[in-house]
Design a protein around this nucleic acid. Structure first.
Length: 766
DNA sequence: CTGGGTGCAGTTTTT
DNA sequence: CTGCACCCAG
């Protein structure tokens, strides 16, 4: 297909054209058109919020397929989340189908299902499987839940002895946090070393960063005792992974990077000219959300596009980087062109998509103003140099206060006014559906500290909130009943809790939860003969067990027998309940799969043995179940299912975290929590700074930790603010604009230039 | 609007 | 323990 036909076909679909014609009739491409048709060498796209970057990526893929006749097998598109991957895939398929309608014959030659559109992690996993990487045969890929259990059980760094004390001292900042589950109060004055729980969390953080930052282990080892011990701990963890054939998410990436330089890997990148059908050559790589890339991912991307002319196309916005906790370093995008020079001595083409097609002019202005009002954002390395400001380009218009502020005495009052405003918008036909609005906040948990007041006031107004990430997994009826029934069988007298050693806080916390589950079970039991008969029968059988006799059923089998009874079989008609029960059973499965540290133990975790006295499950087993599995569930919580297709169910008002809202847009954005203070630096930043000297592809380190932390917060609010189409409404209480709060004359980062007076001038108060 | 005191609850994000 | 929400006095 000729380019002209391609763009003419697209025009009615897009509602705009990607080129103009000059007086002489020649085609003049606009910025987007130049991106779409770029086919030679690295391309660096800086795309602001609402600039249509995903659309551009989709069009570019279609262009490559339909105009340049590139083999779909030679194109890879990666994104940051599964959800985004799915979204792009759907849009490309829809676009391709549209072209097929006009050129049915092309359907035979272009199989769009051969395109790889996925997250980098699934690319690593899939390709190593498909190409039979010898280092990745029969490995179990662990998610973060499993990684936690595995590390807890198998990392020496985590075992409570003094050998690794220097490491704990070196990284004492990882042990400052209060932990409500274990009651851990931080490592004050280094009096009591951190508990195993805190150590596990820290170890995972330290290990993952070593991999993600491509730390030079030799350099690290030679830097002193604590560093040597850290490397020792890391290597021991890696050995355990290999020994048990496990792989975590960061190790997956490092395995893949190594794989790319093996014969199998070269086959994947370079292809096999003899057998092109089977082994195509990788020609085009497109990476979305590049601002969240970390050093090891950067290396993977450079390695994937190592063949000239290095057709790697990266898209992102340095101002929207939100994932430092995952090792993401904004430097990767800021320094991309420099890296191309270093790696390949190739000039990279930079293009800017800075027209905002989303928001009201005043909101665009506000976003620009917000970002640039902070000195931290003007530091070298903070942003891409000479980045243009966002330019208003949407259809949203009207002379009304589009950036406003609701401010009352208390949080409940603010919540009430927020709810009435939403109601008013609906009653006055400013919105047709509540899901055109969103409430953004740092945490959406339904406690008085966070979303509770908002949820209550919305309900008072007859508006149903949609809050799937409030982590209420463990208090959901079906989960509580399932766990209650399970525990009633294996530990009917709660012996396991009674004999639990260690912190009373843990014991009390677990005890309280377990009691609630059992109560939930007992509440429904009288009306659920099927379930209660089974539970009574199973309990009776276990009571008759001889000491140390093996139970007939495994943990998973017992669980399945519980949930196959009424009322569970009825509940299964509810997709949410089914999802949650499925989640619980997969958590059970993951727990069962963690091998015991003590190799002499005679079974795996999934098998339950009677205690030495008989009558209930063995102490050791119960201890693991409560202290490892239950505690971990309590600490992290689990979220409800979310529908990928829709933002919120019709007429529900979504309450979201900023991360959740990333990439989405709403007519009315309400945001609570502008007061975020300059607290202690985030752990991830601290580790990043500490690790920087050992980093192989140098992390830029000329920005101080506290400035990086400030930049992260500014970017966080920038993402939130730029979601709004028609109006952005700040929600505050009176004291949040006070000038001197902590004594050092600073207010929250959500406020322009951290200057309440300036904020008052710019924002319209209602 | 602000200074100061009390009381209470206890992050977030992804593969 | 810390930090925030809230209240009261000026």
């Amino acid at each position: 297909m000729e380019f002209q036909e391609f763009s003419q076909l697209l025009e009615p679909r897009l509602g705009y054209r990607i080129y103009n014609t000059n007086a002489a009739g020649e085609i003049i491409l606009n910025e987007q058109g130049k991106i779409i048709t770029h086919t030679n060498g690295p391309l660096h796209i800086i795309a602001g919020p609402g600039s249509g970057k995903t659309e551009t990526l989709v069009l570019r893929t279609l262009y490559l397929l339909f105009v340049r006749n590139v083999d779909p097998k030679s194109i890879i598109v990666t994104t940051f989340t599964e959800k985004a991957a799915k979204n792009i895939k759907e849009r490309i398929i829809t676009g391709a189908e549209y072209f097929f309608e006009h050129h049915p014959k092309l359907q035979e030659s272009i199989d769009i299902y051969n395109l790889r559109i996925c997250t980098l992690h699934s690319l690593c996993n899939d390709v190593m499987q498909e190409y039979h990487s010898p280092d990745y045969q029969n490995f179990r890929l662990m998610d973060d839940f499993e990684q936690f259990l595995f590390t807890f059980e198998h990392s020496n760094l985590v075992q409570e002895d003094d050998h690794y004390l220097p490491v704990y001292e070196q990284f004492d900042y990882l042990f400052e946090k209060y932990d409500p589950v274990s009651g851990y109060r931080g490592w004050n004055n280094h009096q009591y070393p951190p508990n195993k729980w805190a150590l596990t969390r820290a170890a995972i953080n330290l290990f993952n960063r070593i991999t993600e930052y491509r730390i030079n282990l030799n350099l690290m080892r030679e830097s002193g005792d604590s560093w040597r011990l850290l490397v020792e701990g890391f290597e021991q963890y890696q050995e355990q992974l290999t020994h048990f054939q496990r792989c975590d998410f960061s190790t997956l990436q490092s395995k893949f990077l190594e794989f790319l330089n093996t014969p199998h890997g070269r086959l994947f990148v370079d292809g096999d000219p003899e057998n092109y059908e089977m082994y195509p050559r990788l020609e085009y790589l497109m990476v979305d959300e590049y601002q969240d890339t970390n050093p090891i991912q950067e290396l993977i991307y450079f390695s994937l596009s190592r063949n000239a002319p290095h057709n790697i196309c990266i898209v992102g916005d340095d101002d929207q980087a939100l994932y430092r906790f995952r090792g993401g370093t904004v430097e990767c995008i800021v320094n991309f062109s420099q890296r191309c020079q270093q790696q390949w001595s190739v000039e990279c083409t930079s293009r800017y998509l800075n027209t905002n097609y989303r928001s009201h002019e005043k909101i665009v202005e506000y976003c620009n103003e917000y970002l640039l009002s902070f000195p931290q954002m003007n530091m070298p390395g903070a942003r891409i140099q000479n980045k243009p400001r966002l330019v208003f380009g949407s259809q949203v218009h009207g002379n009304y206060p589009s950036v406003t502020c609701i401010r009352t005495n208390t949080k409940s009052d603010t919540a009430r006014q927020f709810a009435s405003m939403v109601k008013w918008l609906h009653d006055n036909n400013k919105i047709q559906d509540y899901s055109q609005c969103v409430l953004l906040m740092k945490s959406v948990r339904e406690t008085s500290r966070h979303a509770l007041q908002f949820v209550n006031e919305l309900k008072n107004q007859g508006i149903t909130p949609y809050n799937p990430r409030s982590r209420q997994f463990l208090v959901q009826e079906e989960i509580a009943v399932a766990l209650g029934a399970f525990i009633s069988i294996i530990d009917p007298d709660l012996e396991g809790i009674r004999y639990m050693r260690g912190g009373t806080a843990v014991k009390n916390n677990i005890g309280r939860n377990v009691q609630q589950w059992i109560q939930e079970y007992q509440r429904i039991a009288p009306n659920s003969a099927e379930l209660s008969m089974y539970v009574n029968e199973a309990t009776r059988r276990i009571r008759q067990k001889q000491p140390q006799e093996k139970l007939k059923l495994s943990m998973a089998e017992l669980f399945y027998l519980i949930i196959s009874r009424q009322p569970f079989s009825n509940w299964k008609e509810d997709p949410e309940r089914t999802y949650r029960l499925g989640k619980l059973s997969s958590l059970f499965e993951q727990f069962s799969a963690i091998p015991y540290f003590d190799q002499n133990r005679r079974s795996n975790r999934g098998e339950i043995w009677a205690s030495s006295r008989g009558g209930y499950a063995s102490h050791k087993w119960l201890m693991d179940f409560y202290k490892l599995f239950v505690t971990r569930l309590m600490a992290y919580g689990e979220n409800d299912p979310e529908d990928d297709e829709i933002i919120a169910p019709p007429n529900h008002l979504p309450i979201m975290t900023v991360h959740q809202a990333k990439g989405l847009e709403f007519d009315f954005v309400f945001i609570w929590g502008l007061s975020q203070q300059e607290d202690d630096e985030d752990e991830s930043i601290h580790i990043e700074c500490d690790y920087a000297p050992f980093c192989q592809n140098q992390i830029q380190n000329n920005i101080a930790c506290h400035d990086k932390s400030a930049q992260d917060k500014i970017r966080f609010y920038f993402v939130a603010y730029s979601r709004a189409r028609c109006a952005l409404i700040h929600l505050l209480t009176q004291q949040e604009l006070r000038i001197s709060r902590t004594g050092d004359n600073q207010t929250g980062f959500g406020i322009i230039g951290r200057d309440p007076n300036r904020f008052r001038q710019i924002v319209h108060f209602i």
